[in-house]
């Protein structure tokens, strides 16, 4: 099975700081990692490869330094890695990013079409969860989101999808795009050999000139999203202690309070 995993390099912190003036992320001084959900997607891809054979390619859009993330993926077990990079791509929102990615997929598919494209559910820096689904739309392929397990069987993939209600057991014809959320397993550790080979690997780049692109859909120009403000909502906790002589009296008080606040 020919598998593509799209990954993003993100700052290694759950407490991302935001520049109050530009409303963008402050990346200086923060070490970078492979977006954890993309790591799970890679592991899902590698498990499918282990089971049915094939190739796992990783693709990352980002600046030159994102090669480090791709090398991490190679160390973990990806067969090939491509960096999608160009100054013209700078400032792309999710729509522009997914458009550029879709053009890169088309370019890579000149060699061999991908049966399966895997993406992390979302990136931990932007948290939009839009790029995967949008990429599927640009490519006109079926999509399944928030999967935690996936196996391949001939022309279909089967898996378990996390939803608010529980789990959906899904089956989807390939070629398809699947986004992966936190799996019950961790991505495997590299071996010393694969780690050293990845460190020494040359990562090829794909630039705007290599692609059949409409530049009006790329970068800041192609990005309808405008971030007005990013902030952490303040949490106000108002606690009211209810007291009464019996549990049923407290329950009645609670019901009244909930009705008063239109909760019940």
């Amino acid at each position: 099975m020919n598998i593509l995993v799209c990954v993003k390099q993100v700052p290694d912190t759950t407490e991302i700081k935001i520049d109050p003036v530009t409303n963008t992320l402050i990346r200086a001084g923060v070490p970078s990692i492979v977006n954890p959900y993309d790591g799970y997607a890679l592991e899902v891809g590698l498990r499918i490869k282990d089971a049915v054979g094939g190739t796992v390619t990783v693709l990352c859009m980002g600046p030159e330094q994102a090669k480090e993330a791709l090398k991490t993926c190679l160390a973990i077990g990806a067969d090939k890695a491509w960096l999608l990079t160009d100054r013209l791509f700078g400032g792309s929102d999710t729509l522009a990013t997914s458009y550029i990615l879709s053009r890169a997929v088309k370019k890579l598919e000149e060699e061999a079409p991908f049966d399966l494209i895997l993406c992390g559910k979302q990136a931990i820096d932007g948290d939009t969860a839009q790029v995967g689904p949008e990429l599927a739309e640009h490519l006109g392929r079926p999509q399944v989101t928030c999967v935690i397990e996936l196996t391949a069987d001939g022309d279909v993939v089967r898996g378990k999808r996390e939803s608010d209600m529980g789990y959906d057991i899904i089956e989807c014809a390939t070629p398809a795009l699947v986004t992966v959320t936190k799996t019950p397993f961790e991505p495997r550790f590299p071996t010393i050999r694969s780690r050293l080979a990845a460190t020494r690997a040359e990562i090829p780049s794909i630039t705007a000139a290599d692609l059949d692109l409409d530049l009006a859909h790329c970068g800041l120009k192609g990005s309808p999203t405008k971030v007005k403000k990013t902030f952490t909502p303040s949490r106000n906790k108002n606690v009211q202690m209810l007291q009464a002589d019996s549990p049923s009296a407290v329950a009645a008080q609670l019901l009244d309070a909930l009705r008063r606040d239109n909760v019940a």
Binding site: A75, E186, F189, I192, R195, L196, A198, T199, R200
Partner: peptide, 17 residues
């Protein structure tokens, strides 16, 4: 670069496992 990457890899193994 190789030493840095091996160090990071083994440190992660130590921290996680």
């Amino acid at each position: 670069d190789e030493q840095k990457d091996l160090q990071a890899m083994v440190r992660e193994f130590a921290d996680k496992e």
